[in-house]
Amino acid sequence: MFPYRSFLTVAALCGGSFALGAALIAPAAFGTAATPTDGAESEEKPYSIAEDGTVDWATYNGYRRYNSVCFQCHGPDGLGSTFAPALVESLKVIPYEQFLEIVVNGRENVTTATESKMPALGADPNVMCYINDIYAYLKARSDGAVGRGRPAKHQDKPPEAAEAEDACMG
């Protein structure tokens, strides 16, 4: 789904976090997270939604994974909470590379008025194995292509996605 350039970024960033000695899984494993099912999609539109509303597997899986590892802070459906920004808005201004950089390395905004901190998730396979899926979902939400809640219809899990998941999660 993502151009080769992004692929490299994933591997490079993940490799960086391994240098810190935090991870159990080989960096190459995360590379398989980018389950390119449709080479025609562009980075700007990393999701595909059929006429009848059926979303591709990556977008659907991104919904599931978002709600496991992101929603506790960023709120339901990417709409934000009292302590973390609405990613539906953030992705209107943050490009893919920066999104990835923040997820991998974290971000801190601690001032006299606020104490918010995004953790570095580069070593977490539950995030990194699905990061492109999560991006696809959030971008679809941000673009208004996918509504709130669970996408009603979705493509079946492709065998490649299952294989990639097993390889990445170990």
Binding site: V69, A123, D124, P125, N126, R150
Partner: peptide
Amino acid sequence: MDYEPYQVAYTAGQPYVGATLSM
């Protein structure tokens, strides 16, 4: 709620949740 459990791996200091919820 709706609750969908799925496979999750443990990494020390990282969220160990393994389910999607909507309320």
